[in-house]
Amino acid sequence: MKRAIMMNSRDNVATALENLDAGALTSVILPSQEVLKEVLTMQAIPFGHKLAITGIKKGNKVIKYGEIIGNASQNIAPGDNVHVHNVKSNRMQMPEIWYREEG
């Protein structure tokens, strides 16, 4: 089974350690390599990109490394790709060109 890593036990996202296909059962591991759970991907997740390991409601915190990396700009389901299309920084917004290119 392909793997994604959750950096801290408080996190609600994990980072894909390989390219993940849509609809694939993915094993979520901790930095100790211990398998925590399995999550079904909702979309394809490229290597290095994030998937939600729990549902995250619009406006709620997205947590990686045990810290807040931004807030959900729309409802996110478990297994969803989590990136610039559904997360906004609480500090500094990037120029819109990135969002257009991602879309």
């Binding site: 980072t15 894909a16 490229p46 290597f47 290095g48 990109h49 994030k50 997205v62 990686k64 810290e67 807040i68 990396i69 931004g70 989590v82 990136h83 610039v84 997360v87 906004k88 920084s89 609480n90 500090r91 500094m92 990037m94 990135w98 290119e101 991602e102």
Partner: peptide, 11 residues
């Protein structure tokens, strides 16, 4: 950064 999966400045 963005293509590589980084979403926000915080991350």
């Amino acid at each position: 950064n963005v293509d590589g999966g980084l979403t926000t400045i915080e991350e």
